[in-house]
Design a protein around this nucleic acid. Structure first.
Length: 424
RNA sequence: GGUGAGGUGGGUGAGUGGCUGAAACCACCAGUUUGCUAAACUGGCGUACGUGCAAGCGUACCGGGGGUUCGAAUCCCCCUCUCACCGCCA
């Protein structure tokens, strides 16, 4: 949620920033400012009325105590009006502030100045490309054939047990998952991230805290009986651990990492995009979350980007980094770098990580603050990224590293997998 | 699923209608004293919104919502969460 004072201070800047997302926010902003003015105006009136009531109540107490019953009774009569008035004003205040919040919730985050205006993925800016496209053997196959051929994943079995998009990893396929998870966690903790295993279901409040609600309501699995949501990413439980907290600036940057399965309904997806491991309802991901001060958040973002890049290089995968355009960025993000690995057999780029700075957008909802050197409370900046999401990494590993006699496992994984090559 | 107890400031915890935004202690911050450290002493120490150039002032908040009352942390109702015991169970 955007901070109201930023809109008050410079609405034109906000409107111009949101224009990068191809959103004309003029009307909404005006409505917000109107509600804000109503709210403040009403509060002044209400506060004055309540102050008067309080004064009278105190007076009546004194009068009773000193035995002046009649005067007390007379004063009592006066309070009736004030009471009705304050009740009305209270309602008006609630209406105005609810309206303001409701409108604020509809606005996405304002993009960072480096973000270009754009409508869709074509407008994203490629900022870096690393590694060469591999030359594959003549009979190279897409990963969904390799997984069957080498007995790594059984998609049909998953369909039987649950449904499409819920694969069963088998044998060395399962071992490879576990190897990647451990490798990622080890790298992240070595880089200073504290490891957590959070709950895989969250309550409604957490959904709002990180902005999945109300924006992505339909994309999460919801357990109506207990009103809990299956997490779409570890970002949700991890970031929400810090909800309603005033953290110490001395602890910055607060770096957390967690492996969790992620659950996404992916309503509306179809076709070749969802084939094999490209898009799943349940998948594994290791997430990194960073909480820091506004002054340092972009330096932290760069560090996170470098960290993720290093992982991909160690896995010997060609990748590129995109700075997302306004229209392709997530609702809550101010600046997002997407990492895509080249899937050689499919001959397409696959997104494997998304590293974002949310600035104060999440912290505002979360009420996540820190005490600055000025002794005042300020909203923190929150950032997160995948380090990394497994399925597409596996897809690219299998496809890019396929050789005549099997699939080569990158060296960094050998101690984790216990095998160096997946052969038939 | 059943029964019972309980949610007060960063922590412990007092507080059954006005003198309580809230005792006391701990923690924390500043200072005094002191070879250093420690101890002791003095003072400070919640959040949000509003208002003001500012000092400050006003209002709200004792799990959440509603009610009674001139006045509610305190009385009443509903909800919720936590804990304990029983049942069931990995």
């Amino acid at each position: 949620m955007l901070e109201i004072h930023k809109i008050r201070e410079d609405k034109d800047r906000v409107i111009a920033a949101l224009d990068k997302r191809n959103i004309d926010a003029t009307e909404t902003i005006e409505a917000i400012l109107q509600a804000d003015e109503d709210r403040r105006h009403t509060q002044v009136e209400l506060d004055n009325t309540l102050a008067e009531s309080n004064r009278l109540a105190k007076e009546i107490g004194e009068l009773f105590k000193s035995g002046k019953r009649e005067e007390a009774e007379a004063a009592k009569a006066k309070t009736a009006d004030l009471k009705t008035k304050s009740k009305e004003l209270q309602e008006a205040l609630n209406t105005a502030s609810e309206k303001q919040t409701e409108l604020l919730l509809t606005l996405p985050n304002t993009p960072h100045e480096s973000v270009v205006k754009g409508a869709h993925a074509d407008d994203n800016v490629e900022v870096k490309r690393v590694g060469d496209f591999p030359t594959l053997p003549a009979d190279a196959k897409p990963h969904w054939e390799l997984t069957t051929e080498y007995d790594l994943i059984d998609f049909e079995l998953g369909v039987k047990v649950t449904g499409a998009g819920f694969p069963v990893y088998t044998n060395r396929g399962a071992r490879l998952q576990r190897a990647l998870i451990n490798y990622f966690l080890d790298k992240n903790t070595a880089a200073g991230y504290r490891e957590f295993i959070p709950p895989f279901f969250v309550n409604e409040e957490s959904g709002y805290g990180t902005g999945q609600l109300p924006d992505k309501e339909g994309q999460m699995y919801h357990m109506g009986e207990d009103n809990l949501y299956a997490i779409p990413t570890a970002e949700v439980p991890i970031t929400n651990m810090f909800r309603d907290q005033i953290v110490s600036a001395d602890d910055f940057p607060i770096k957390s990492t967690a492996y969790t399965p992620c659950f996404r309904r992916e309503a509306g997806s179809y076709g070749k995009d969802v084939r094999g491991l490209n898009r799943l309802h349940q998948f594994d991901k290791v997430e990194i979350v960073n909480i820091t001060s506004p002054e340092n958040s972009y330096a932290q973002l760069d560090e996170m980007v470098a960290h993720v890049a290093n992982l991909l290089e160690e896995l010997e995968l060609p990748y590129r980094i995109l700075r997302l355009c306004g229209g392709d960025m997530g609702f809550t993000s101010a600046l997002t770098y997407d990492f895509e690995v080249w899937s050689a057999a499919q001959e397409r780029w696959l997104e494997v990580s998304s590293v974002s700075n949310f600035e104060t957008f999440q912290a505002n909802r979360l009420k996540l603050r820190y005490q600055g050197e000025d002794k005042k409370k300020h909203l923190c900046h929150t950032l997160n990224g995948s380090a990394l999401a497994l399925p597409r990494i596996v897809a690219a590993l299998l496809e890019n590293h396929q050789e005549e006699d099997g699939i080569r496992i990158p060296k960094v994984l050998h101690t984790y997998t216990g095998f160096q090559k997946i052969t038939k």
